[in-house]
Nucleic acid binder design. Structure first.
Length: 668
DNA sequence: GTAAGGCCCGTTTTT
DNA sequence: CGGGCCTTAC
């Protein structure tokens, strides 16, 4: 590794070589941020800072993996002791290592959003509270805001507090945590157990945070606690690309950072290596309309470029058709490949027509969105079995599979189970055992036998899982077989053999994944518990990587952050979509966030940018004539070229065909 | 306890 | 217009 690479500009060079003390790097879009970060880590290793003293925090698993990969390539070293992790995964690590201080056993389970909702529902039920099930997600969101300190209780009814308390108690009882706990519990532990905090401070003496504008107050709190003493904290971010405030992200963390670390050094990376002068000029002209931002101006030596095209399709079908045809044309005429193209949408609901058009034109594409692999029912069922094997106190997952396949445990039995659990303070699993042992009346013999078999099955595999060096993937196959899960799937999908095979295949993929995890020589924690916690934190984007190259990318603007494409289409650049009408209601700061969102979209493009504005758009019931996005007026007209599309009718049959093939693709 | 049909709802972004 | 959830009927 070159110690002073010639390919860094002066600011980048300084950022790479400033290793001590607090450092704030404001990295504009396309300013070579990732390179700076990887070079900087490489430089640390070069200066003999031990790997295990470095902690690099990112937002997504994907970013973490990429960073690790690039450092590996750059240095040619094995990086077994370097910690590159997401905030949440770091939280898991801390809880595993030290969570016993707060009463967690290291086999704890992480609940995803769905699990939490299930738990909330059962808590409400237990308290005799009646909720419209559509309201529960809102309640869950409120609880999340409260847990992370973004909101207080004022103005909320007393039942909410009661439900919140019940929810929290149950989590603890189940030895389970939700996403927020992964951040808040470490903070709690650090404040109540200074000796633990001290150990982490001594260990992680160099800390780096990527996408700092997306960190929440509590995430910054973790970092601040860790870095307070040694103060070797480098944060990298771009306030103009802060688009996650609804999730608690607070780009004013940048201000907080300056306050907490007044001796900080600040470096601005303003040279853009990505986009043409025209695209950059448009982006700059747009973002200056935001009031609350750090002054900066991206520049590029490559002036000019192709104009930004503003297209006015007749309607959304025409819009999709135009995009598909343009992709085909450009691929041929400019000799491009499909992965040169990115289609960006504000909301997932906008992708439908686009998918159909791409399908119609035989254009390979990948979408980020829809249900993630790990959310599919059959996959979650299998995960529930495995989670129960790891953590028998996990009632939510217990209930998920108790009657899957059917074992005759219906409403009545459930009432009994809950009653026994409560009366004897047992988890459901132990309560089941108790019911079976005490020969409690009211349970039909057949049911009793099936449930006994179920219980013994789980216990058997709990025992097996504790054997040293056991490989759980083959065990899991056996477990499912014995549980009759495959038969259940066959029965459930009796009408469609294809559906059955598809689901079995998904399960097989999951178990393959587990197998790879268990046999990976570089994996320092190849146990089942770590695997399960790991996959709960995996989101859709992380998996997309494994898919084929050579496909057009179709995704939300949010999902596109950090990516770039030679040609970008931004779909529906219309009022009420961009800015989105739902967000407008929330106030003027949100308008600025919507502008940042558009800014992110524009700056994904390297060479050519298309913006589409439909003449008419159909929503649920009505058709209307959308106005162009107000943001369009903020772009200098001389950079834009407006045009209509030539319409070409799609016949009714074509439409039906496409509908059919789209369905087939989504649910084989 | 399960299976099928009707009703009502919705559409912001996701670690 | 389509999907998910809930009720009702065996």
């Amino acid at each position: 590794m070159p110690s002073s690479p010639p390919d860094l500009n002066p600011e980048q060079y300084e950022a790479v070589h400033t290793l001590h003390g607090p450092l704030l790097i404001i990295a504009g879009a396309g300013s070579g941020k990732t390179r700076v970060i990887t070079y900087r880590i490489a430089q640390m290793l070069e200066e003999h800072i031990p790997q295990n003293a470095i902690l690099a925090l990112t937002f997504t698993n994907k970013a973490a993996r990429e960073m690790e990969q690039r450092v590996k390539e750059l240095t040619g070293r094995k990086l077994t002791n370097l910690t590159v992790s997401t905030f949440h995964a770091f939280g898991v690590q801390v809880l595993r290592e030290s969570g016993s201080a707060l009463g967690y056993r290291d086999n704890f389970t992480i609940y995803d959003t769905e699990d939490c909702l299930t738990l909330l529902k059962s808590c409400a039920h237990e308290l005799g509270q009646v909720w419209e099930s559509k309201d529960l997600p809102d309640v869950a969101q409120l609880f999340s805001a409260i847990k992370t300190g973004r909101r207080g209780w004022e103005g909320e009814p007393a039942e909410y507090r009661e439900l919140y308390r019940e929810y929290g108690e149950h989590l603890l009882l189940y030895n389970a945590v939700d996403f927020d706990d992964l951040i808040m519990k470490p903070i709690e532990m650090f404040s109540t157990h200074p000796e633990i905090l001290d150990a982490y401070r001594k260990r992680y003496r160099y800390i780096l945070v990527d996408e700092f504008q997306d960190t929440s107050i509590s995430q910054f709190e973790i970092v601040r606690l860790l870095a307070d003493e040694h103060r070797n904290l480098c944060v990298v971010g771009d306030d103009d690309q802060s688009i996650y405030s609804w999730r608690g992200a607070n780009f004013e963390n940048i201000v907080l950072f300056e306050r907490h670390f007044p001796e900080r050094k600040e470096i601005k990376l303003e040279q853009n290596y990505r986009s043409t002068g025209i695209i950059l000029a448009a982006a700059n002209a747009l973002i200056v309309h935001n009031t609350n931002r750090k002054e900066k101006a991206l520049w590029t030596p490559t002036e000019g470029g192709k104009s930004i095209e503003v297209i006015h399709p007749v309607d959304e079908t025409d819009e999709a058709r135009f995009i598909a045809e343009t992709i085909k044309t450009l691929k041929f005429r400019e000799n491009r490949t499909y992965d040169d193209f990115g289609i960006l949408v504000r909301t997932n609901s906008l992708t439908k027509h686009l998918e159909m058009a791409l399908l119609h034109h035989n254009i390979p594409y990948k979408v980020s969105g829809g249900t993630s692999f790990f959310q599919r029912k059959e996959v979650k069922d299998v995960i529930a079995y495995l989670r129960l094997v790891v953590n028998p106190s996990d009632d939510v997952n217990f209930l998920r599979i108790l009657n899957t396949p059917r074992r005759g445990a219906g409403r009545q039995f459930l009432e009994l189970l809950v009653a026994v659990s409560r009366a004897k303070s047992l988890c459901h699993f132990d309560a089941l055992k108790d019911i079976l042992v005490t020969q409690q009346s009211g349970v039909p013999d057949e049911t009793r036998a099936e449930l006994a078999a179920f219980m013994e099955l789980i216990e058997e595999y709990q025992t097996r899982s504790r054997r040293p060096r056991v490989k759980m993937a083959p065990q899991a196959r056996e477990l499912l077989e014995e549980a009759g899960y495959y038969e259940y799937l066959a029965l459930e999908n009796a009408k469609s053999d294809k559906a059955f095979r598809w689901k079995t295949q998904n399960i097989e993929s999951l178990l393959k994944f587990l197998e790879d995890w268990e046999t990976d020589p570089d994996n320092s924690r190849p146990d089942l518990g770590s695997f399960l916690n790991r996959i709960t934190l995996i989101t859709r984007d992380d998996l997309n990587d494994r898919e084929e190259k050579g496909a057009v990318s179709l995704m939300t603007i949010h999902a596109s952050k950090g990516l770039e494409f030679k040609v970008v289409f931004v779909v529906g650049v219309e009022d009420k979509i961009m800015p989105h009408e739902k967000s407008l209601a929330e106030g003027p700061e949100v308008l600025e966030e919507e502008r940042r969102l558009f800014y992110v979209a524009i700056t994904r493009a390297r060479e050519k940018l298309y913006l589409t504005v439909c003449r008419t758009r159909r929503t649920l019931k009505e058709t209307f004539h959308p106005a162009p996005s107000p943001f369009l007026e903020e772009l200098p007209t001389e950079l834009l070229q407006e045009s209509e599309t030539q319409q070409e009718d799609v016949t009714e049959e074509d439409w039906d065909d496409l509908m059919a093939s789209l369905k087939k693709k989504m649910q084989p």
